[in-house]
Design a protein around this nucleic acid. Structure first.
Lengths: 240, 240
DNA sequence: CGCATATTTGATCTACCTCAAATTCGGTGG
DNA sequence: CCACCGAATTTGAGGTAGATCAAATATGCG
């Protein structure tokens, strides 16, 4: 079905139903698709390293990818999780400013940056769409600044679950929503500026208080959204 | 010289020598300038509130502005300081997601968002320029996520001084640079996710260790950049 | 079923916060 | 030019949220 990693076969355009291409004619989408390749990665595999030459742009077709930055002593900050329809590597830097690693099994569409940039100039409205996408990302990053700078551990964990519910809810029924949380505690911790122990304690607390429930298959949960929402803004509180 | 706040007189285009307009023909810059007005604000005056209808785009002409978000109980996170050439309010949201407040005396250029968006569609390359600017902002925000999520107090303060030196150095001489730090401790603290006391202790420590010097006029400093750089990445350390 | 890895739970420690008081700074008027 | 005042900053002392260290489960895979 999918071309294996780093092969160069032409691919279908099915995956281009993303934010990026929403307003794009099928003909253009096809042209873009013909310039790139599909790649597959397994969990924990590095897609690119901070500092690598940034000569490609990637679109996530399937699965989830984490982006992170490291300090010299190994402290890590995950700056975001991206999934189907999101782009990586578009910034005009010479080299990547993040490391990118697969969280789940992942399929990516990769295109040389120079070619993609040509499309930006040629396709009417593409630059504008990318601008809107970048502004949305910026808004999200600013919310995360508030979270990291000023929220308590339980507020961060609640905010995280809430945003996962907004982005990845599989089944919503009023207050309840079944969500998929494919990343490890360690990733959640490095995303929220906490330790795995604090994340674990926070989640245990939320379970005990009936705000979330751990579903069978290890990676599914049920949520009481209103409570989560007030916890995430500090309007409500529980002790760890 | 400058038109006072909220008057609607046509203005000169002198201030449009910004990032935004770098690649723009003078004729276009003039057309844009004719669609907006100049405004003046004094320190601590609010330019717009989070939640206000976002019907204008602003360009900073002179001075410094802070952007912040609040939690319901008053905790504050400053997401950025902007200055000459920077834009505010461009995101396509219905309402502002930040509050904006003058740090110094400020002159702004204000233009109705609808008009500015028309220029984005009409002026070739403008969307692209704005995209690059947004991506730069995003990179900066991601660095700030690392700072807030994983850096210690002294690393945050060193990083802050270093970035001020990079952006606002008035006089650079090898390791030394005179910089202008117009914001209060309270603003620095809310930008770095610390308290004013911790910021003050950190700065005192850096002074005692000869990394920075407090210059006469309250708001100027001299810096040892290499030391600051290694402190900011955690390669080096001092106690508070 | 058993091992390797992830998660949870417990006990203690510490970087930074909070509360409080002393000092410095910037502006104002004599 | 200098004394005064309110606000900002600095400094000190003690408390605490979350980190760290350590051990006990749980989970998933061969």
């Amino acid at each position: 079905m999918y071309v294996s990693a780093w092969s160069a076969n032409p691919v279908s355009t099915d995956h281009l139903a993303s934010t990026l291409c929403r307003n794009m004619e099928r003909e253009v989408a096809t042209r873009i698709a013909q310039q790139g390749v599909l790649l597959k990665f397994q969990p924990d595999h590095v897609i690119f390293h901070e500092g690598d030459e940034a000569d490609s742009v990637y679109e996530i077709v399937k699965g989830m990818v984490k982006l992170y930055k490291l300090l010299p002593d190994g402290r890590r900050q995950i700056t975001g999780f991206v999934s189907a329809g999101d782009l990586m590597g578009l910034a005009h830097n010479e080299s990547f400013i993040h490391t990118s690693e697969a969280v789940t099994d992942v399929v990516l569409f990769r295109i040389p940056k120079a070619r993609f940039e040509r499309f930006i100039d040629e396709v009417p409205g593409l630059a504008r769409s990318l601008l809107i996408a970048a502004q949305d990302e910026l808004n999200f990053a600013h919310d995360q600044l508030l979270l990291l700078g000023r929220k308590t551990a339980i507020e961060r964990i609640s905010s995280f679950l809430l945003s996962m519910a907004e982005r990845y809810a599989e089944d919503v029924d009023g207050q309840e929503a079944t969500i998929h949380v494919p990343m490890r505690r360690c990733d959640i911790a490095d995303y929220l500026g906490l330790t795995i122990e604090t994340v674990s304690r926070g989640l245990s607390r939320l379970k005990k208080d009936g705000v979330v429930k751990d579903m069978n298959g290890g990676r599914m949960m049920v949520v009481n959204q209103d409570r989560l929402s007030s916890l995430s803004a500090g309007d409500d509180s529980v002790d760890l």
